[in-house]
Design a protein around this nucleic acid. Structure first.
Length: 281
DNA sequence: CTCCTGTCCTGCCGGC
DNA sequence: TGCCGGCAGGACAGGA
């Protein structure tokens, strides 16, 4: 699940329980995920107080009172579970990292495919660390605008869909929201990035913002309910316009689906793209 | 530089 | 029913 909206939703969930609390216990259950866990992670986290949480791209940054940040990336299959104090919990398969807080709450990082990442980075390195140095602008910040996006797409020969997945162009957009944004902007996914016109980039910029903001709102609203149920964060039911809707009608469709075939699925760089050939050019 | 492919890993689903 | 191939929300290395 984890594209920007899901990561932001998880961050907001953690923000409700972590700040101001001491990490009293750290259980690291294997030595690596996609990359090795940081050296001495358990020792370096235990006894630290969480000051606040931020997000950069698809990374959650848990700021600690010694100036370091516990950096989490959810990869393809990462989840975060919050277990409240006193609440019983049996460890599950793929629970890789468990932090216990001073009030007894636990946060559990579960990641079956292990494409996730856990880093320990000093706040001074937030611009320079390998993970962050090449990242593009935050799509929901003021620094993101049509001219900024246009400059980054200029002369690019790759399809616009792939350009949107490139975290150096703009961060946080993954396979789902790339498809959804292109649909909303009416742009065909195979168009070469450099060929997308200024007015289309204008629409695309707004579409990316809208799609991501709406998803965060949806995640945020379902978050509470879900936590009441079982404490799990970051998953919400979502209705997409084109993603995973092959052969179906897109919203507001007036086509004869039997003739047009509805939403098409193609593969670009080994990843599925869904789009409406009628509405996207 | 840019672009593309393959790879990491497990789980699930559909087809035979 | 069981097995097998394909596919899944990401990111990176390596080669052209």
């Amino acid at each position: 699940m984890p594209e920007l909206p899901e990561v932001e939703t998880i961050r907001r969930g953690l923000e409700l329980v972590l700040p101001g609390q001491v990490i009293t216990k750290v259980d690291q259950r294997r030595k690596d995920l996609r990359v090795p866990f940081p050296d001495n992670l358990v020792k370096r986290l235990t006894g630290r107080t969480v000051t606040h949480l931020t997000r950069r791209a698809k990374y959650i940054l848990i700021h600690l009172d010694d100036g370091n940040m516990l950096v989490l990336h959810m990869g393809m299959s990462g989840r975060m579970l919050i277990v409240r104090p006193e609440e019983a919990y049996d460890l599950q398969k793929h629970d890789h990292l468990i932090l216990t807080m001073e009030d007894g709450a636990r946060i559990i990082f579960n990641d079956p495919r292990r494409f996730g990442m856990v880093l320990l980075v000093h706040e001074n390195e937030i611009e320079t660390h390998k993970a962050f140095a090449a990242l593009g602008p935050e799509p929901l910040d003021n620094g993101f605008s049509a001219p900024v996006l246009a400059a980054r797409l200029k002369d690019r020969k790759s399809p616009i869909k792939q350009a949107l997945l490139d975290q150096r162009i703009v961060v946080g957009v993954g396979n789902i929201y790339a498809c959804e944004s292109l649909f909303e902007a009416g742009i065909g996914p195979t168009r070469l990035a450099g060929s997308v016109k200024a007015e289309e980039i204008e629409k695309l910029t707004a579409a990316i913002r809208n799609v991501l903001s709406r998803a965060i709102e949806a995640g945020g609203s379902s978050l509470k309910d879900y936590r009441q149920a079982d404490g799990e964060l970051g998953y919400f039911q979502h209705s997409f316009s084109v993603y995973d809707r092959e052969k179906m009608a897109c919203p507001g469709c007036t086509c004869d689906i039997d003739k047009t075939g509805g939403v098409q699925r193609i593969v670009q760089s080994g990843r599925s793209t869904f789009y409406c050939p009628q509405k996207q050019r």
